[in-house]
Design a protein around this nucleic acid. Structure first.
Lengths: 205, 205
DNA sequence: AAATTGTTTGACCAAACGGTCAGGATCACG
DNA sequence: CGTGATCCTGACCGTTTGGTCAAACAATTT
């Protein structure tokens, strides 16, 4: 492609500017809703110049998505079989929520793709993602069987963590409309709530 | 407008066909991603004929969205101050999940709108929605103070219910890719998990 | 300074899009 | 049957969009 191993200084700078502007636009308006002119303008380039760095709109989107996948799944990968089960899972929740706070654009880009049927990352989902999730679900199942956490369906537990944490990024407008928060303070209350939610659910009694 | 009180039989039938086809397209591809030609074709009409029933693409979308809002919030409205607190909330969860199963297109339409900043329903959010949510949050707060449910942040409790239930509609593709379910059986397991999640969280001890 | 390589642009294009319009077909009803 | 209202369509239009291209400009190397 065009973007791995950017050689010159200018290439690195412009590719980065394009990807950043594209992330803004794609996450705010969706793939179809974002235009090359918008992206180019936001990146401070002309449209032909933008297309000098990426062969197509599709290519920019693909670069963003594939670059995102790894980062996005990393917290789950780090769920440690040797740690304290409840602490591990609650820690995972906290990490995911911090990512929703720090990288809402990425979360929305991802959400958009999935809502629309994941046409460009379907293989990633039924492949590596499923493998990883199944592996971690198995780990959780073992914790349940060992009586170290209260019984729960591991897959649905993971889904609920994704849902509750990413919700704060994806539905940001709705939450702000209701809470009227200043800045992102409400994330602290969210963190506390989610910690309570999962601690009570998972602590064996 | 054009669509309230459709007079003739043909008007009723075609308006309905258009809205149904539009719901398909908008929920699958977003507002910008859906085209009038697609919608018209899916509704079995020509594009000019479609525009005989609705003045614009925007109008179709607005009709869908406003028609949806009421239905979507109804379950929350029915949270009963006189019922058993835990049962009321768990019942609300169950209802929302059933809606996600029965009306995934509506859920996605809504999700799409919010993700993209709710440009067309922002007033609804900071107005009626906020009012309703604040009112129900107050109810939950009272339950907490009366010791009838364990202490939780009411707003974030509601958010988590929205997130976990709608997730099964909005992220359907991802969930199917991971679980490989037949039909929508996995909704039963989801219902059981969520019931456990909220029962353990809310039951006072 | 010349030559090579890398970067940027204005002008342009074909396709797709939302929407219009004049007129033709069909229906309901006296 | 006739006639007015409703319903439907092909042809068309202006704009936007993703993308191309030849040529100009800048940087680097020799």
């Amino acid at each position: 492609m065009n973007t791995h191993l950017p050689k010159t200084r200018i290439q690195r700078r412009n590719s980065q500017a394009i990807l950043n502007a594209a992330l803004d636009m794609f996450s705010a308006h969706g793939f179809r809703g974002a235009t090359l002119d918008q992206i180019a303008k936001a990146a401070g380039l002309s449209k032909p110049n933008l297309l000098y760095y990426f062969p197509s709109k599709e290519a920019i989107h693909a670069t963003l998505l594939s670059g995102l996948m790894d980062t996005w799944l990393d917290p789950l990968r780090r769920l440690d079989p040797n740690g304290n089960p409840v602490a591990e899972i609650v820690g995972y929740v906290r990490l995911k929520l911090e990512m929703a706070r720090a990288y809402p654009r990425e979360s929305r880009l991802f959400a958009n793709e999935i809502i629309h049927g994941a046409p460009r990352i379907h293989d990633e989902i039924v492949g590596p993602l499923k493998t990883l999730v199944d592996e971690k679900a198995e780990l959780i199942r073992n914790w349940v069987e060992a009586g170290r956490i209260a019984p729960v369906d591991p897959h649905h537990l993971i889904f609920s963590i994704w849902a509750t944490t990413q919700h704060y990024a994806d539905f940001d407008v709705q939450i702000r409309g209701i809470l009227n928060p200043e800045g992102s303070q409400h994330f602290d209350a969210a963190a506390e709530f989610l910690e309570t939610l999962y601690t009570r659910t998972l602590t064996p009694r």
